[in-house]
Design a protein around this nucleic acid. Structure first.
Length: 460
RNA sequence: GGCGGCAUAGCCAAGUGGUAAGGCGGCGGUCUGCAAAACCGCUAUUCACCCGUUCGAAUCGGGUUGCCGCCUCCA
């Protein structure tokens, strides 16, 4: 099955054609581990997971590399503030990061290299760029001369915009030849960790680590590179400049960027009080699968407006689907066969998914299945129709991972007896007693639904 | 200031020239001893606003307003 995706480089939706027949090599920009991930970060990682699972579903093998940036200005600064080693700080937050990833059921990348462990590859790239005159040394640092790379700006379409002079000032800018040049290697400073290399003592610039890791683990050319939209410029632009001048050719076929998340219509910020981590949402009592579904339920190219109300809606959606599945299990068999419609809707779910991850439409088709089944009435459906529905949801859930599709466990005997006692009381029209027992069962976490000649016990 | 994106019901969100998907919530009804669940009906005669193109516009063009992002280390 072919998958189409929007390529930032060409500004078009393109069919993904892997370099190696069935294998997709993907590099995903990972976290800088200096603090807890916020829900904006996590939306991106859920999107990457969705993309990966979609590719897997389409029949590809995926080899994914995700960097862990464990050395950078913020890490060093914070470690110094706390008077701890920067490595310790990075390790702490890396652990929290992977905890969050697991909680949101995000697939682990095949490889998660650390910047501090990839210095030799960075040195190899920087050395070559120095040798070929694309990079230059200045005041202990090494810079990339963007004037040497004719295609600089092709990803972010720099030719279409005008940089605002002095919009922001790089602390090192006075040392550079051109204001657009960026640092490959930062010369050693006081109270900063450093590495010794042929071209000087210091630490890596930000962009070089991704060029190094993708080169080392995915080779000179790979299929997909993902990141948040904010990384298009300068990070990915600079990465292209480094990698392409090092390798001598194009290195990434599809650049994929996900949009940001807003909270209550505004950019998330601590000062606005709309800043959330996963832990914050858990403490508010929201289940993690509701968070995952909410992140999944908007297209990755649009800004997702996160609201508590919306999260509650996602939670309800999950509850409704789960209950639908349980009713499906406990329904009787009938004669209405809707297998064909189910097959059709299931196919559309994936058609939309494979078309630039158009999951919003996929979810609409999923709900169509529920509506169709409910309208036909579950007791009227043939056994095979119902198993088709269940199979469809199992397939959807391989991507979504938010529903509980298992038949809920057997009701304990004491609960069963109580329920039967109530039913008998009800048959005797002793409603007071019946309601009493029902309240008791509710308190125990079970819901009774009366049917014509029977009743259903559901676990809440 | 430059570049780009967005504006659709109470909330979230599809729709990209042919007469407004889907979800959540709400309201009324059927069913029920009462519930629950389900079903039926209602919940945008209209897509921020103003012009224009067209037989026909939420969709295309121009303008206005508002929001968001990027403009050198933020997913």
């Amino acid at each position: 099955m072919e998958v189409k995706i929007y390529n930032t480089l060409t500004e078009k939706v393109e069919e993904i054609k892997p370099i190696e027949d069935n294998l997709i090599k993907m590099y995903s920009c990972g976290p800088t581990v200096y603090d807890f991930a916020h829900i904006g970060n996590l939306r991106y990682f859920v999107f990457v997971d969705l993309l990966k699972r979609t590719l897997l579903k389409a029949g590809y093998k995926v080899f994914q590399v995700m960097n862990i940036t464990d050395i950078d200005d913020k890490i060093i600064q914070r470690a110094n503030e706390r008077k701890i080693d920067y490595k310790e700080l990075a390790k702490t937050y890396e652990k929290y990061f992977f905890d969050d990833i697991k909680k949101l059921k995000i697939l682990m990348p095949e490889k998660t290299p650390h910047a501090t462990e990839e210095i030799p590859t960075m040195v190899e790239i920087i050395s070559k760029l120095l040798k070929s005159g694309i990079a230059y040394k200045k005041a202990g640092s090494v810079y990339y001369n963007i004037g040497k790379y004719a295609e600089y700006g092709k990803l972010s379409k720099l030719d279409r915009r005008e940089l605002r002079p002095g919009a922001s000032v790089d602390i090192d800018s006075y040392e550079k030849d051109n204001s657009g040049d960026f640092v490959l290697w930062k010369g050693k400073k006081e109270n900063e960790p450093f590495f010794e290399t042929d071209f000087g003592v210091g630490r890596p610039g930000w962009h070089i680590e991704c060029s190094a890791m993708s080169y080392r683990y995915l080779g000179e050319q790979f299929d997909i590179h993902t990141g948040g939209v904010d990384l298009i410029f300068p990070h990915h632009e600079n990465e292209i400049a480094q990698s392409e001048m090092f390798c001598g050719h194009k290195t990434v076929n599809y650049w994929v960027h996900s949009e940001h998340l807003l909270v209550d219509g505004k950019k998330m910020s601590k000062s606005l009080g709309n800043f959330y981590t996963l832990k914050d949402l858990q403490e508010k009592g929201f289940p993690l699968n509701a968070v995952r579904l909410l992140f999944l339920s908007a297209h990755y190219k649009t800004q997702l407006n996160f609201t508590i109300k919306g999260l509650k809606a996602s939670e309800n959606t999950i509850k409704n689907i789960n209950e639908f599945i349980q009713r499906l299990y406990s329904s009787g068999d009938g004669k209405k066969d809707i297998s064909e419609s189910i097959a059709h809707l299931k196919e559309e779910f994936f058609t939309h998914l494979f078309n630039n991850i158009d999951i919003v439409k996929s979810l609409a088709r999923m709900h169509d299945i529920v509506n169709l089944a409910n309208k036909t009435e579950l007791d009227n459906l043939t056994r095979s129709s119902k198993s088709k529905i269940l199979d469809a949801f199992k397939e959807f859930n391989e991507i979504l991972l938010v529903f509980n599709l298992e038949k809920s466990e057997i009701i304990p005997q004491e609960i069963r007896s109580l329920a039967e006692e109530r039913w008998n009381a009800r048959q005797d029209r002793d409603f007071e007693r019946a309601d009493d027992i029902r309240n008791k069962l509710t308190a125990l976490g079970y819901i009774i639904e009366d049917k014509k000649d029977d009743f259903i016990i559901r676990k809440k």
